[in-house]
């Protein structure tokens, strides 16, 4: 009887080891798929595009192949980089401004009911104006330099930052506030120990939406009137019927947006702990 018991236990032990190893293998397989699925999908789309261009008989003049665009990016690296820096500066300027103003607005809205009532309708009204419609007006007032682009990027990025920060702060469990109050926490301590950390995932959600919108804002600003920047380079390419350069600019713009997005994602991973991170 005792012998079978120990035998059972050792069998059970092996079984457990096996299922744990299986779970581990499954997890690493899932991780691989998760990490590279986006890259694989992108590669597949580019590959189809690459072969479809010659098959369809379209001239490279109308639709260049990804390969042609890539080689162009490499050969015109210098030119693209010069303009990319300008656009990057405008994007970061607008986004940075939106973060400072947006978070300040959100805090004031959160702490002051009268201010919330006064400012919310204005914010929503502002949000319903298509920002593209503002671009020519901004040029009129602010000229051809970086100022209207930064303003446009700022205006377009402000709303999501304000809303997500306010929602993040308001959705806090009130019992958590009672908890730290019972420990004798001041409002400043309550803010930094509980309110802010709990709101960070929301705030970063807003930041990520905002940074992508900032890129759009800056480039639209460049379309309307500019002497430099990736949007301007696209217009140049258009007027020269240089479709490949045009696509190369688009690719650079999108690379810019993606890079900034993932930078924010990285920062978020460093400072914010998501509720379900252990899953």
């Amino acid at each position: 009887m005792a012998r079978t018991d120990t035998a059972d236990i050792s069998v059970a032990k092996q079984q457990r080891k096996k299922s744990m190893a299986n779970a581990k293998r499954k997890r690493s397989r899932e991780q691989f798929a998760e990490r590279y699925s986006a890259l694989m999908l992108a590669a597949a789309i580019l590959a189809i595009w690459q072969v479809m261009v010659p098959i369809s008989g379209l001239s490279e003049f109308i639709l260049p192949t990804p390969w042609a665009i890539a080689t162009r990016i490499v050969s015109e690296y210098q030119l693209l980089a010069t303009h990319a820096y300008i656009t990057l500066f405008e994007v970061l300027g607008g986004f940075g401004l939106a973060v400072v103003v947006g978070v300040t607005l959100a805090l004031t809205i959160f702490y002051s009911k009268p201010f919330e009532r006064a400012i919310y309708p204005l914010l929503v009204a502002m949000q319903t104006i298509p920002k593209v419609a503002l671009a020519p007006i901004l040029v009129l007032y602010l000229g051809y330099g970086w100022a209207p682009k930064i303003t446009l990027a700022f205006l377009i990025a402000l709303f999501p930052i304000v809303i997500s920060t306010v929602v993040g702060l308001q959705s806090l469990d009130r019992n958590l506030v009672s908890l730290v109050r019972s420990m004798g926490a001041s409002e400043i301590q309550t803010f930094f120990k509980v309110r802010l950390p709990a709101a960070l995932p929301n705030i970063f959600g807003g930041f990520k939406v905002a940074i992508s919108l900032s890129v759009i804002g800056a480039v639209i600003g460049e379309y309307v009137a500019a002497e430099r920047g990736l949007g301007y380079l696209q217009l140049q390419a258009n007027s020269l019927f240089d479709t490949t350069l045009n696509f190369a600019s688009v690719a650079t713009i999108s690379a810019l947006g993606v890079t900034l997005y993932f930078l924010l994602d990285y920062v978020e991973g460093r400072v914010a702990y998501k509720r379900d991170a252990a899953k």
């Binding site: 420990m183 702990y273 509720r275």
Partner: peptide
């Protein structure tokens, strides 16, 4: 005080949760 819900801060480890009152004081 111990409340009905545990009210642990999910972004802090167990030990840092326990040390929260010390930090606040």
């Amino acid at each position: 005080v111990v409340f009905q819900q545990d009210l642990l801060l999910y972004w802090r480890t167990v030990i840092d949760n326990i040390l929260l009152p010390i930090e606040i004081k």
